[in-house]
Design a binder for these strands. Structure first.
Lengths: 244, 244, 244, 244
DNA sequence: CATGAATGAGAATTCATTCAT
DNA sequence: AATGAATGAATTCTCATTCAT
C-alpha cells in the first residue's frame, strides 16, 4: 500500500502553494559585482543593482548567456550602459554575482534532505525535496542552464556548476542505507540519479518534453527511492495523467 | 545471479574494438551545406568540404557552438574564409550539415534496440545498446552539446535535438513489457531514464565527473532494466571499481 | 683654479637645506579654477580645493596629463566627482590653475639670475641658480612635463610653456657679457643651453639617466659658464663620482 | 680660423640635398604589427600596411600619440577599421612597429659618428653627424616625441627611448679624446650635450623656437666640439642670422 | 577552386560631465 | 558644501560576410 497513505498535497499545494521548507527566492545577487564592492551603496544604488540583477536573470533566461547583450540587460533594467559598468565589470561579472548566490541556495537545498527510509515516509521526504528542487530550478533556470553551457570551460562557472552537482550527489549518498543497495555501486547510482533529476527538470522546464509537473516528481521520487533507498515497487498503481 | 553469465567483453572490446553493430562513423556531412548542393563537387572539392566538416566538429567540441568562430574553423581546416563560404552559407549551415547526419545515426541507433526481457539476455541487450550510444555520444559530443545549447530556441536545431530525444524515448517504450511496470507511468519513466542516460554520458565525457566507463554503463543498464523492464535486483553484487 | 674656491655648500645645503632665495612651494593654485572664482570660499572650501590641487599634481606626475582621469584625481583627493566640478570646470581648468602659478614661480626664478662674470663668482652664481631651478623642477615636474606634452598644440598651455622657456633664455642673454662670446651667436647658444638644462633635469628626475644631482649641476654650470660667460676650463679637475 | 675653411655646403646642400651618408628614410615599419606577422602578406597587403604606417606617422605627428584615434589613422589611410586590426593589434602595436624601426635607424646613425679631433675636420665630422640627426629627427619627430611622452612609463616604449638615448651618449663618449676634457666628467658632459641636441632639435622642429636650421647646427656643433673634443673658440666670427 | 583582402555593422567599455539629494 | 548616482557620446575592437584576383 505504502504510497497511498502519503499526502502529496501536504507537501505542496500547487505551484505556488505552501511548501515544507519555503525557499527564500530572490535573495540572490546580494553581494553584487566587482565594481560595486569597492563602493558603499546607498539605497538608490542598491535598488539599481537589484534592477540590473533581475534584468540579467530575465535576459539570460530568454536569450541564454552567450547571446545575451549588455544592451539587452540595460534596456530591461531601464538604465544606461554607463550605469551598468558602475555595478558590474561586464556581463560575466553580473552572471557570477547571480551564480554565486544560486550556488549557495542550491547547496543549502541539497543539504536539506533528511533521512530517507525505505518506507512511505522516506518516499515523502524525497518527494518533498525534489519538489523544492524543482521550484528552485524553475526560478534559476537561466543560471543553471548557463552553468551547463560553461561547465566544459575551465572558468569559475564550470567549477561552480560541478561543485553544486557534487553536493547533490553527496547529499543523496549521505542518506543511503547501504544495506538496501540494488546491485550497483551506490555512489555511481547516485550520480546517475542526480543526472536524471537535473535533466528531467530541464526537459520539462524548457518545454522540450510535455510532462505534468506532479507526474515528473512522482516518477523521479519513485525511481530514486527504489534505486537508492530500497523503496518497494507498488504494483497496480496507475494514477498518472497520460501526456498528449 | 543472471548478469555474471553475460560477457561484456563480447559486447565491447575496448574503445576501438569490435562492436555488435558497428557505427558508420564519419559518414557524416555527406550532404554538405546549401552552397555545395548547387554545384557538382569534384574529388578535390569533396576533400575540402570534409576538412571543413571535421574542423567544425573539432572546434565546436572545443569551444561550443556559440563561441566557435568561422575563423577558428577555417584555421583548423587549413583553408580560407573565402573557401568556407564556397561550401557553407554560414556557421549554422555547417552545423546543420553535421547535425542532420548525427541525427540520422542517432535515430538508427535508437531503433536498434531489440526486445528486452526481464532476464539476463534483456540486460545484455540493454547494456550493448547503451554501449553503442556511449560511443556515438563520444564521437558527436560537440553536436549533441550544441543541440542542448540550442534546444530552447525555436530553430531547426532545437527541433532536431528534441526529435532525437523523442525517438530514444519511443524506442524504450516500444520495448517495455507493460506488465512489469513499477508503479510509475512507463512513458514518463522512459523520459526520466533517457534523461539519466544522456546526462550521465555528458558528465562523464565532459569530465565533470570521474566514473569509469564500464561502471557507468553497468549502472545505467541496471537501473533502466529494473525501472522499465522488470529486471531483478541482484543482492550482494559489488564488482565495481570505486572511484577515487 | 677658480672653481675650487667656490663653496657649493653655501649655495645649497643638501636636498632640503637652506637656499639662496627660498622657493615658496605650495603657494600654488592660489587662484583656483573658474567655478571657484565665482564664489567666496570659506575655510572648508579652500581646504577641499587645495586637496584637489595637490591630488592633481600627484596624479599628473604619475600618469601624465593626458592619461590622468578626473576619477583618479577625485580618488586621490578623497572626494567626489560632484565636488570636483564645484571647483574646476574640468581637468584642463585644474591644470591651468597649477600651471599659472608654476609659471609665475618659474619666471621669478628665471629673473633671479644675478650678474655672471667669467670668474669663480660668476660660476657660483650660475651654479646656485641651476640648483634652485632643479628644486623647482623637482617639485613641479608634473606640470612641466605636461607643458612639453602640450607645447605643440596651440592651446594656452603651449603658450605658457613657451613663454617660460623664453624667459629663461632672456635671463641668460641679459647676463651675457658680449665680449666673451664663443664664436656662436649668444642668443642661439642661450637657447641651446636652456634646452640642455631643461632636458638634463628631466632625464635625471624621470630616472631615465642615473647621474648624481651634484654632478649634473656642476656639469651644467661649467658648460654654461664656459659657453656663454667666458668661463675658463680647469684642467685636471676630476672630482666627480663616476656613475655605475 | 679653423672653421672658416670648412664647407658646410659640402655636408649638406639644403634640406633635401646630398648628404655624406644618406639616411634611408621610410624603410620604416618593415616588420609590421603582431597580427600581420602571423600571415604571409601579398603585395596588396603590404601596400595597405604601408598606408597604415604612413597614416600613423602623420596622425601621431599631428595629434600626438595619446590623442590619436584609430579612426583618424584609418581615415588617413583610406581604409576601414576592420582592415586596421588585420595588420595591427591596436594603436600601440602600430606605434611599436614604427618605433622599432626608428630606433634601428637612430642607432645606426648614432654609431655613424667617426673620429672627432679638436681640429676643423673634427668639427666637420660632428657637424655632418648633427645634420643627419636633424634630418632623421624631422622625419620621425612624431615617434620621438611620443617616446618622450611614454618614457616615464615602464612600458617597452620607455625602454626603447632610453636605449636610443644611451647609444647616442655612448657614441659621443667613444669618440672623446680624454685628454681634452674640460674639467667635467666627459660621460656626464656627454649626457648633457645629448640632452641639448635632442631638445634643441625638438624646439626648432616643433616651432617652439624660431631659429634657422643652419644656425642651430652650427651652434650645437660648436658647443659640442668645444665641450667634449677640445675644439677652440673662434673669436670674432659672427656669421649668424639673427632670429626675428 | 582557392585565397588573401576588405568591409562595416554591432558589441563592449570608458569617462567627462550633469543631476538629485 | 558635499556626494553618490546617472548619463550617453566617443572609442575600441570583433567577426560574419563579400570581393577581387
Amino acid at each position: 500500500m505504502a504510497i497511498e497513505g502519503r499526502s502529496p498535497e501536504a507537501a505542496e499545494a500547487g505551484p505556488d502553494g505552501p511548501r515544507l521548507s519555503p525557499v527564500p527566492l530572490r535573495a540572490v545577487g546580494s553581494r553584487g559585482g566587482a565594481p560595486a564592492q569597492e563602493r558603499a551603496l546607498r539605497a538608490r544604488g542598491r535598488r539599481t543593482m537589484r534592477r540590473l540583477l533581475d534584468a540579467g536573470m530575465t535576459v539570460f533566461e530568454k536569450r541564454g548567456y552567450q547571446a545575451a547583450r549588455v544592451d539587452d540587460i540595460v534596456k530591461a533594467a531601464n538604465t544606461s550602459h554607463g550605469t551598468f559598468y558602475l555595478y558590474f565589470a561586464n556581463k560575466e561579472d553580473l552572471f557570477r554575482a547571480l551564480a554565486v548566490d544560486v550556488a549557495d541556495e542550491m547547496t543549502a537545498l541539497a543539504e536539506s534532505l533528511g533521512p530517507v527510509g525505505p518506507d512511505q515516509d522516506g518516499y515523502a521526504e524525497l518527494r518533498a525535496w525534489l519538489d523544492r528542487f524543482n521550484h528552485l530550478y524553475e526560478h534559476y533556470q537561466a543560471v543553471i542552464t548557463a552553468w551547463t553551457e560553461a561547465a566544459t570551460s575551465n572558468t569559475d562557472f564550470g567549477r561552480m556548476g560541478r561543485d553544486v552537482m557534487a553536493r547533490f550527489t553527496s547529499a543523496l549518498i549521505a542518506r543511503i542505507d547501504e544495506t538496501h543497495v540494488v546491485g550497483v555501486d551506490p555512489q555511481i547510482a547516485a550520480v546517475a540519479l542526480v543526472a536524471m533529476i537535473e535533466r528531467f527538470n530541464y526537459f520539462v522546464l524548457s518545454r522540450q518534453v510535455r510532462v505534468d509537473r506532479k507526474d515528473m516528481l512522482d516518477t523521479l521520487a519513485t525511481i530514486t527511492h527504489m534505486g537508492l533507498f530500497g523503496g518497494r515497487r507498488r504494483a497496480g498503481r496507475r494514477p498518472f495523467t497520460r501526456r498528449g
